[in-house]
């Protein structure tokens, strides 16, 4: 996390009132980028990031130094929920197109072969904790931050990451074969 974040987290730890605008300004960009890893549409990613901050504001009780971790967790969960909804909608549309024998559009064909799309569909098929762990880790969160964000035991984060990676690989290979 950047220096501003550290200062804010330290303030929160000290029991000082967290100023919503300051937290929002300091973390919005990073939270939105985490969400954008999962949600393809940037505008939607920004909206979901705002939703995460509002959720935090609604439950604004003193969380001390866990405030930031809580924000990331909520954000990544909102993003994964969105991804799953989108995956379900996509499956439904595929089914309807098979029934209606409509031809896939060039965009459909492009997306089907797009690595981003593949990775997202694999994430949508994983357990939410595994997917959240991989997404947050790929965004550069350290083990301690991951433990705070996802409520894990700090000493077990490595094990959870390994499991999540195995689950990811298995799901990826099952869907797309060895690449």
């Amino acid at each position: 996390m950047d220096a501003d974040a550290d200062v804010l987290a330290a303030d929160a730890t000290a029991g000082q009132t967290c100023d919503f605008d300051a937290i929002f300004t300091a973390h919005f960009a990073r939270v939105a980028r985490v969400v954008a890893r999962v949600v393809r549409d940037r505008g939607r990613a920004e909206d979901l990031a705002v939703d995460a901050f509002l959720k935090w504001w609604r439950h604004a009780d003193p969380r001390g130094d866990r405030t930031i971790g809580w924000l990331y967790r909520v954000a990544v969960r909102l993003a994964l929920d969105e991804l799953r909804r989108s995956a379900r909608r996509s499956r439904y549309e595929q089914l309807m197109s098979v029934l209606g024998r409509s031809t896939p559009t060039p965009e459909d064909l492009h997306l089907a072969n797009d690595e981003q799309q593949r990775v997202r569909s694999v994430l949508a098929g994983l357990r939410r904790r595994d997917a959240a762990l991989l997404v947050l880790r790929s965004d550069g969160l350290a083990y301690d931050e991951l433990a705070d964000a996802l409520g894990l035991n700090r000493t077990s984060v490595g094990t959870f990451i390994s499991r999540a990676q195995r689950a990811f690989r298995n799901e990826y290979v099952r869907r797309y074969g060895e690449q």
Partner: peptide, 10 residues
């Protein structure tokens, strides 16, 4: 896995 997830970097 990291290689695959790098595809998601905005």
């Amino acid at each position: 896995v990291d290689d695959r997830l790098d595809a998601l970097t905005p």
